[in-house]
Design a protein around this nucleic acid. Structure first.
Lengths: 390, 390
DNA sequence: TTCTTTCATTGACAGGGGAAAATAAGCGAC
DNA sequence: GTCGCTTATTTTCCCCTGTCAATGAAAGAA
């Protein structure tokens, strides 16, 4: 084995080729003619861009399957060959590390997780390395290379530098995670904020496909928000954006652990909801599931807690819609488990708070499994690999 | 005179040329080498792009003025020849129409305004046509052509179509203003939302020069917000964006004419402030100037009204900063006349509400004269002319 | 069978922008 | 004063990308 080696590199270096690849990636099997129309390019350009991608194995032609237009010659479908390569996605949370092995189409092939107890960078890194090792072992069975690893972390992340600027969960500051993880795993590593990673996955493979402006709002332990404006995920100049959780929804609201009062988080954060349900019911519920159960059982106080949470979320979404005029807002996160308890309030508060045409923004709920976050991390790795710098 | 004529067309059709022109436009006289560095292009590309622009007269070389680098050959400065062409900018408000005649550098050469009484599209259009005619007469004296007219209107505007979708002030719906005004004035007309127009002016000539992410917040009759994300002005998919005025700041706040309670507008809108000052002081102030005077005279109730307005504005800015992570927020509008009455509260509320690195966003006040809005409209006309589709 | 329609490919070609070399123009060392 | 160093600008190729127009393919319709 050579002491230095050249990492596999994606052949589509031109704008057109990269654009066509992502178009095919997002819009499934496409005829070349369709791809040209969608990407606004000539058919000739598609033919030329597709050829090296097929030669390199990233795209394949389904010779057997044909689509017949109403009239004219049948078309050949081109699609991304998911089996061509693998990627690893890692999502670090306070208590666990989730990992997935995905193919080039970002379909999850293997999912694994390990508990996380310590929070020092060194300890976390060791757990990540362990998890990656496991996933790499699994990958051996597929006989194709793992081309990258994406890591998603809550907090402020400088994606370009691969540095975690600040993670409240882990209590990290300026940890050069990409570099460290690349050294221990031997893979090209990208690091990004967790909600933004999830947003990339939605943009390419989920409910954001084809939209230039949309938002993802996640409800769970924290309230997060990923924004896509002009087709690009917003990261902010300092690596912070989409901080909807600490937007003050009601200055007279409950105190938040951040020191303010009435943050969205204080109304709709997981722990906060549980605490308030415990308070108003006098029970001793300790987690979300129990709190939801109490509300489902019909306790009016508990229901009210959820109603107020929904109201706050809807108001937050209205703010996003008013400011950015997105086409759609995708609501997701573990908090959706209680969705029936506040769905109506979200919609009402949104409609009441959205101004003018912002009301035309579509609200959509997507109950995404938790591994979806790790999948988002893999999506960022794929993005780096195919150099879709957006 | 021919029955049809060809409108003057800007020669820089390539991305590089357009980029270099806007770079020179924004960053004043520049050496070719500097322009290349700023635009991330080769020096050769600049030379090639600049030549036709100089030939067409849009750029000029200041042969006399030279900059000497510490070492090496002196450089020649290139700048936009403002006197090469004129543009008209029109800002329509409820009671007046403001118009400016600017040069290619968007410097105001003539400012005019006419009162506006009727609000029907036809009547407004007649006033606009009258104002444009006056400005065109003024333009004759300069001996250079007027190449376009930009019109700025508050409300929802479809810039691409040139249609005012909804203007609450004028009570317009789906008025194809660009087409109508183009017919009556004989000029190429662009129509845009007023705050977005102002934002373009700031982006190219004001405090937004060189920034990829910033916001403009205007305080006055209404509270507006223009957003620049990834170097582009955000317009939203339905032509609505930056609607910060009706973001609910405090659900227990005063009622707003929009039907909600505690909108930013209800705290900090001009009319609302005047009404509340009247209320708390028992005086009969009727306009901003009087209200400010009362507060300046030291009336504690009046001061409190301004303090609360500042708090609300600061909270709104914090929300923008949390969501988008801009580098700077430019505060402007007639409301700045009372700035000393709420400057502190704005900053305090912003600092209290901004999360993490969002606090690093810089707040800047820019007392812009009212004609600045019309200048913004002219800037949109220039943008159309030079085809900087952003 | 022939025409029409749509898909795909090819080859010629234009133009944009880069690299490298050439030219220009100062400054300081000698 | 000349030489060499440095930076600015221009020139001269030249690659490369993407479009155009022409061609071929493969249906269904007349």
């Amino acid at each position: 084995m050579p002491s230095t080696f050249r990492a596999e590199v994606f052949p589509a270096r031109t704008p057109a080729a990269s654009q066509i690849f992502t178009t095919v990636l997002s819009h499934g099997p496409l005829t070349r003619a369709d791809a040209a129309r969608r990407a606004g390019l000539s058919a000739a350009a598609v033919t030329k861009a597709v050829r090296p991608l097929i030669e390199a194995g990233y795209l394949v032609e389904d010779a057997d399957v044909e689509t017949r237009p109403v009239l004219g010659r049948p078309a050949n479908l081109v699609r991304v060959d998911g089996g061509r390569a693998l990627f690893i996605g890692i999502k670090i949370t306070g208590g666990e590390i989730f990992g997935v092995l995905t193919d080039l189409c970002c379909r999850v092939r293997v999912a694994r997780d390990v508990p996380l107890t310590a929070r020092a960078p060194k300890a976390v890194l060791a757990s990540v390395a362990e998890l990656v090792r496991e996933l790499l072992t699994e990958a051996d069975g597929f006989g194709v290379p793992v081309l990258g690893c994406g890591i998603a972390v809550a907090g402020e992340v400088d994606r370009a530098e691969g540095v975690v600027r600040y993670s409240p969960f882990l209590d990290w500051r300026d940890v050069p995670l990409a570099e460290l993880a690349a050294m221990t795993t031997g893979l090209p590593v990208t690091v990004d904020n967790d909600v933004r990673a999830l947003t990339v996955a939605e943009q390419w493979f989920g409910a954001g496909v084809g939209l230039s402006d949309f938002a993802v709002v996640t409800v769970g332990a924290g309230i997060g928000c990923g924004l896509v404006v002009h087709g690009r995920v917003v990261a902010g100049v300092h690596g912070v954006a989409g901080e909807i959780g600490h937007v003050v929804v009601d200055p007279a609201g409950p105190p938040c652990h951040c020191g303010r009062r009435g943050c969205l988080q204080a109304f709709a954060g997981d722990a906060e909801i549980v605490a308030r349900v415990r308070e108003v019911t006098g029970t001793s519920v300790t987690d979300s599931a129990e709190a939801v159960a109490v509300a489902h059982a019909g306790h009016p106080g508990a229901r009210e807690v959820y109603a107020r949470a929904g109201e706050a979320i809807g108001r937050g979404i209205a703010t996003v819609a008013n400011l950015l005029g997105p086409e759609r807002v995708i609501i997701s996160g573990e908090g959706l488990a209680a969705y029936d308890l506040f769905a109506e309030q979200i919609r009402e508060a949104f409609t009441a708070g959205a101004f003018g045409s912002a009301t035309r923004c579509e609200l959509l709920t997507r109950p995404l499994p938790f591994e979806e976050w790790a999948r988002g991390a893999a999506a960022t790795a794929i993005r780096s690999f195919i150099r879709a710098d957006q």
